[in-house]
């Protein structure tokens, strides 16, 4: 197209963003699962929480 020396418009690297996105996904899923199990264990309704 143009004869100018343009950057090719491609993202180089960026693995830190990828790892952050997967990391926050893992943290939220594990954290929420843990919160569910802990809250269930805290209720004494006479039934054994599994």
């Amino acid at each position: 197209m143009s004869e100018m020396a343009m950057p090719e418009g491609v993202i180089a690297g960026g693995w830190s963003y990828v790892l952050s996105a997967y990391g926050i996904t893992a943290v939220v899923f594990i954290g929420y699962a843990w919160s569910l199990l802990r809250r269930r264990a805290a209720v004494s309704d006479g039934e054994e929480p599994k």
Partner: peptide, 17 residues
Amino acid sequence: ERHMGDVQRIMYVHVPT
């Protein structure tokens, strides 16, 4: 991805979420 490179891999968790 041809323009986004590796960053596009975020799609595999973002879109399903």
